[in-house]
């Protein structure tokens, strides 16, 4: 856990402005068209400009009344969940449903330090069987239960 002091209104303004610029840049690569025949870029560009104006408004509001508050960043859960997602995304095709899900849930369980290795293992086992039942047996997901990295067909 890390404490960060930020002016939330300024922060929000900056996030919005960044998105506005990125979207405006993307929209300008498209044909804007004419008013009676709008091109694919017109509406996105108009919305990006609106976002820019609103973002600047937020920034100005924040700068006018400096209101700094503390934000706690729970690094452990964030990192563990990011790892879990990356792992799932990159191994699901290779390892298959069961092993991937087991390890993903295990990693996620480690996000909370009150979970022990034992409780995480039990949770992962129960949940991967449950999800296998729901998605594979129940809904007929195409992904194999054990993937090509583990078994050869």
């Amino acid at each position: 856990m890390q404490e960060v002091r930020v002016n939330k209104t300024v922060g929000a303004g900056l996030v919005f402005i960044a998105f506005a610029i990125a979207f405006a840049f993307g929209a300008l690569q498209l044909d804007l068209g004419t008013l009676s025949q709008l091109g694919p870029g017109y509406f996105p560009f108009a919305m990006a400009m609106l976002l820019l104006i609103l973002g600047v408004a937020s920034l100005v509001e924040g700068l006018r009344k400096p209101d700094v508050s503390t934000v706690m960043i729970p690094w452990r859960p964030i990192i563990m969940i990011v790892l879990a997602l990356l792992f799932f995304g990159s191994t699901i095709r290779g390892l298959g449903l069961m092993p991937t899900l087991f390890l993903t849930i295990f990693a996620a369980a480690m996000a909370d330090k009150r979970n022990t290795l034992l409780s995480a293992t039990c949770l992962s086992a129960v949940m991967s069987v449950f999800s296998w039942l729901v998605f594979k047996v129940g809904l007929g997901a195409v992904v194999p239960t054990f993937g090509p990295w583990l078994v050869s067909y």
């Binding site: 997602l85 799932f88 990159s90 449903l97 899900l101 295990f106 996620a108 369980a109 409780s119 998605f135």
Partner: peptide, 28 residues
């Protein structure tokens, strides 16, 4: 602490089954 790992797992497999690609996970 017993509930949330299941939520994470469900999100992963849910997104994968809708998008049918690992890319969906990166969007997530």
């Amino acid at each position: 602490r017993f509930l949330f790992p299941a939520i994470v797992g469900f999100c992963c497999i849910g997104v994968f089954s809708v998008t049918n690609s690992g890319f969906g996970l990166y969007v997530l």
